[in-house]
Design a binder for these strands. Structure first.
Length: 411
RNA sequence: GGAGGGGUGCCCGAGUGGUUAAAGGGGACGGGCUGUAAACCCGUUAGCUAUGCUUACGUUGGUUCGAAUCCAACCCCCUCCA
């Protein structure tokens, strides 16, 4: 099977420029390609995972991924998919975010092999641009007429929301990134989400117009779940990929709880399992789709957090959902016995562990019968945790059906 | 610089002097049903030292017994003109 065939069967391709020529090239030589990641957030989230997985697959077929960290473009802010101006981040925050991103790429890509992945950063060239020279050399290749026709711009204008000149320039810089990578690293392909199509095509055209070379673009579908919602965001926030912001257990749970209709699509996108094996899983799990969800959760978690974390998460889930076993791996609060001289309010503990943002919220949860102490519903919002609730030094408090934590009491 | 329109809770959006912590919708969370699913039904959706108190309708000040609502100044956004 060729790379393009596998990409298609797994559902990675949304649009592609000159597919025939690209496909021939991918089959005959090892190429360099890039995907850009801005560092506007403290971590990547699941929404970027499809981009990471496609890089992984390309690398498996012998191609060189270039991970372009957008330290330069982050200073501007991509208007695509945003209906309001982004906050301007300080250089320090950008650096912190960038290093968090790098940690994740290290898990998915190989930075050592022959066709090793390369990390690049567009502030290398963007920071030293000279405005006049830049406009003369590259600005002439862009027409306002065309720029105005881009969705990212059109939507802002239609909604009568302001689009600053700074943001308006984003697409030019992204096009220029491609040009620079083409010059520096012979990068001939840019991949991105479907919302990046316009920006990618701009880069291809800039390369063609300024130096007459052909380059390629490929977009992945915008990842939505079966309800059509953008993937990766929940009320608590995004499904972060860095463990310090989103635990491996929660990550496992995220995949375990995926919509039925998404399971096999996601197995193809987010695991390394061969396609025929996925087909087999599909027929094996006809009677119990939850088996397939567990496989998905195991594999997706293994890729990001490792095998141990995945099996630990699985075990924790089995323990907590199947019975009364209190799993060791749940989040924990430690208290001393003498602290029980003062009332230990259950709502306070819920806030402490981070399952609720305020005491009021925690109390409302209790009022709505959403909180359990050792499997039985807490009836009064002012109920305290008492020493007699603690057996074997432990008590378990549950918020909803899925969030649990342990209170450990020591002498 | 001129003329006009606008800024309401997580988001959209109603409200033009009084039981308005603010209709309605969306989202999210909790409960029920289930399979840790979807759909559906119900509830919650500012904070706190909690049956009361404190914040809240761009900002600041004013009028009033009482303001998201009226007045003034300022800030920001949009449209048109220069």
């Amino acid at each position: 099977m060729t790379l393009i065939e596998e990409l298609k069967q797994r559902g990675f391709i949304h649009q592609c420029t000159n597919e025939k020529a690209l496909s021939d090239m991918l089959n005959s030589e090892s190429i360099k390609f890039y995907i850009g990641f801005d560092c506007t957030a403290k971590s990547l989230h699941v929404g970027s995972l499809i981009q990471i997985m496609i890089m992984r697959l390309f690398q498996k077929y012998g191609h060189h991924p270039i991970v372009l960290i957008g330290k330069g473009t982050t200073k501007i802010g991509d208007p695509s998919g945003k209906d309001e101006t982004r906050k301007i981040l300080s250089s320090k925050d950008i650096d912190i975010n960038a290093s968090n991103l790098e940690k994740v790429f290290n898990k998915f890509l190989n930075f050592q092999s022959n066709n090793k992945a390369i990390l690049s950063d567009n502030s290398l060239w963007l920071n030293k641009l000279n405005y006049i020279n830049f406009l003369r050399d590259y600005g002439k290749h862009f027409t306002i007429n065309k720029m105005l026709s881009f969705d990212s711009v059109k939507i802002r204008l239609e909604r009568e929301q302001s689009l600053s000149f700074v943001e308006f320039n984003y697409m030019i810089f992204q096009a220029y990134d491609f040009f620079e990578l083409n010059e520096r690293n012979e990068c001939i392909l840019q991949i991105g989400g479907s919302d990046q199509w316009g920006n990618i095509v701009n880069g291809i055209e800039l390369i063609r117009r300024s130096i007459g070379k052909e380059s390629f673009g490929l977009t992945t579908p915008l990842l939505t779940n079966a309800n059509g919602d953008k993937m990766g965001k929940t009320a608590d926030g995004a499904i972060w990929l860095n463990e310090e912001f989103f635990s491996s257990y929660d990550y496992w749970q995220f995949w375990r709880n995926i919509d039925d209709r998404d399971v096999f699509r996601f197995l193809k996108l987010f695991t390394d399992l061969p396609l025929d094996e996925i087909k087999k899983i599909e027929s094996d799990s006809k009677d119990d789709i939850n088996l397939a969800k567990i496989i998905l959760a195991n594999h997706a978690t293994t890729l990001l957090h490792g095998k141990d974390a995945a099996s630990k998460a699985k075990k924790t889930a089995q323990d907590t959902f199947s019975g009364n076993i209190i799993s060791e791996n749940l989040p924990k609060i430690s208290l001393l016995e003498k602290e029980f001289k003062q009332p230990v309010y259950i709502y306070d503990l819920i806030v402490k562990i981070g399952f609720s943002n305020s005491k009021s919220e925690a109390r409302k949860l209790i009022r709505g019968h959403g909180v359990k102490l050792n499997q039985s519903v807490v009836k009064d919002e002012l109920d305290e945790l008492l020493l007699e609730d603690v057996s074997d030094n432990k008590a378990m408090i549950s918020v909803g059906k899925k969030k649990h934590f342990i209170v450990e009491v020591n002498q």
